[in-house]
């Protein structure tokens, strides 16, 4: 239980730093504050997909169920955080750029990533089948390997078109940096907290399936 309280404490500290301590940005004003949560979500998304990648390799090599559980749980959280990043970025984009979406390389890569792991979850939502788990693991590896390639290709794709809107380069004053670091830290703690619960849930579900089998 201590973990949960610690995460909550970190969250409150991050909120306070982001909304009270950090000064409003010169041109964007308070609208810039969404960045603290946006960056933290995006960072967590990449962290979560990296965990999927590593645990997929371990699952294929060792064949232990717990690595598969870890990959599935982390993928779900990764999609959640990617959604958060896309939505928060879109809201920010609407208020600062004036558009909900632009085909900026980073945005496009994140969107493709979101589709990729949504497909991963769709694959996992079918009936229990070790083949499904193995294919998911393979996809978890290939998908992650594909990320830098997707990013490169999207950058080149865009380089041929005039980019109408570029995200402003943000030079941050120290209080902003502190708020951002705190926010990233709090979100990462949240990720691990949720991951632990999700893993526990998956283990329980598997035990239930086993019991059901035995009762049959």
């Amino acid at each position: 239980m201590g973990f949960g309280w610690a995460v909550m404490f970190l969250g409150v500290v991050a909120l306070a730093l982001a909304f009270l301590y950090a000064p409003p940005e010169v041109t964007m004003g308070d609208r810039q504050r969404i960045m603290y949560f946006h960056v933290a979500s995006a960072w967590n998304a990449y962290l979560a997909f990296f965990v999927v990648f590593v645990s997929s390799i371990l699952y294929l090599r060792k064949g232990e169920r717990r690595w598969d559980r870890l990959a599935l749980s982390s993928a779900e959280l990764g999609v959640f955080f990617t959604t958060m990043a896309l939505v928060s970025g879109s809201i920010w984009g609407r208020s600062v750029w004036g558009v909900w979406w632009t085909w900026d390389p980073r945005l496009t890569t994140t969107l493709i990533l979101w589709f990729l792991y949504l497909g991963y979850l769709l694959l996992r939502s079918g009936e229990e089948d070790p083949r499904r788990a193995r294919l998911a693991a393979v996809l978890g590896i290939i998908g992650f390997v594909d990320v830098p390639i997707i990013h490169m290709s999207v950058i080149w794709w865009q380089s041929l078109h005039p980019v109408v809107i570029r995200p402003g380069k943000v030079d941050m004053v120290p209080p902003m940096v502190l708020a951002l670091v705190a926010s990233v830290f709090a979100f990462t703690a949240l990720y691990f907290y949720l991951l632990r619960w999700r893993l526990g849930l998956e283990a329980l579900r598997e035990r239930m399936m086993l019991l059901r089998e035995r009762l049959r």
Binding site: L116, G119, Y120, I142, D146, S153, V154, W157
Partner: peptide, 13 residues
């Protein structure tokens, strides 16, 4: 659903 996100670089290229 699984193929096209992976193939994004190929489509662009």
């Amino acid at each position: 659903v699984l193929l096209f996100p992976l193939l994004a670089p190929a489509v662009i290229g």
